[in-house]
Computed example of a mutant assay.
Amino acid sequence: MKNLKSIALALVVVLSTLSVTAQTKKVDASKSIVNWVGKKVTGKHEGTVNLKDGKLIFKGKKLAGGTFNVDMTSLTATDLSGEYQGKLNGHLKSEDFFGTEKFPTATLIFKKVVAKTANVYTVTGDLTIKGKTNPITFDLATTKDTAATSLKIDRTKYDIKYGSGSFFDNLGDKAISDEFDLAVALKF
């Protein structure tokens, strides 16, 4: 009887020390989509930017972490064409906005993941744009082979102040919203 209790106790100790191994799911950058919308007093512009790479880390079936690199040089407006698209793309890539020559990559590193509902997580991470890192929190919905989120980013936290009514007076209808929207659809 004493041996049976010892074996049972040893089994409990061994089972309690086993942890669920992490599974990394690499994001398929070619099939994932990042859409952006930037608003101004007189309207808005929208476009895309490409992921370079990314991964989500799961423990069992629960999201536990993630990292992403965005190719800022791929930033393009999709609501314009020809000369006007070229001018806007050039301005967005300039130092006035994202400075893609000096800062070709933006990064997101998950720092904390909390389950909100089944397959929906509240993620807090460090977002780096133009060499500036700030915390950001958003909800991410996952399935077996996809993840999606919509979030707002305050560009002024990343030293992108061009046309911001928060920093410049008398902009009138030339003012540009401090926040831009991202809609992200990931496939892995």
Rank of each mutant, 00 (worst) to 15 (best):
S81W: 15
G82M: 03
G82T: 07
E83R: 14
E83N: 15
E83W: 12
Y84A: 12
Y84F: 11
G86T: 08
K87I: 12
K87W: 10
K87A: 11
L88F: 03
N89M: 06
N89G: 13
G90A: 10
H91P: 14
L92R: 02
L92F: 09
K93L: 06
K93H: 09
S94W: 05
S94C: 04
E95Q: 10
E95V: 15
F97P: 04
F98D: 01
G99S: 15
G99T: 14
G99F: 11
T100V: 14
E101N: 13
E101W: 08
K102Y: 03
K102N: 10
F103W: 06
F103M: 09
F103Y: 03
P104W: 09
T105P: 04
T105C: 08
T105Q: 14
T107C: 03
T107Y: 01
L108K: 09
L108I: 15
L108C: 08
I109N: 11
K111W: 15
K112W: 05
K112V: 06
V113K: 07
V114L: 13
V114R: 12
V114E: 13
A115G: 15
N119K: 15
V120Q: 04
V123N: 07
V123P: 15
T124Y: 01
T124I: 11
G125N: 00
D126M: 10
D126H: 05
D126E: 11
D126F: 04
L127A: 02
L127G: 08
I129M: 04
K130D: 13
G131S: 05
G131Q: 13
G131W: 09
K132P: 12
K132G: 02
P135A: 02
P135W: 08
I136Q: 01
T137G: 00
F138M: 03
F138C: 00
F138V: 07
D139T: 09
L140N: 08
L140S: 02
T142E: 00
T142P: 11
T143Q: 01
K144P: 10
D145N: 06
D145I: 14
D145R: 13
T146E: 00
A147N: 01
T149Y: 10
L151G: 07
I153C: 03
R155N: 01
T156M: 01
T156E: 00
K157P: 11
D159C: 11
K161E: 01
Y162H: 04
Y162S: 07
G163D: 12
G163R: 08
S164M: 01
S164N: 02
G165Y: 04
S166F: 11
S166Y: 13
F168L: 03
D169Q: 15
D169F: 14
N170Q: 06
N170P: 12
N170A: 06
L171C: 11
L171R: 02
G172M: 12
D173Q: 05
D173F: 05
K174N: 14
K174P: 11
K174Y: 11
K174F: 13
A175M: 08
A175E: 02
I176D: 06
I176C: 08
I176M: 07
S177Q: 14
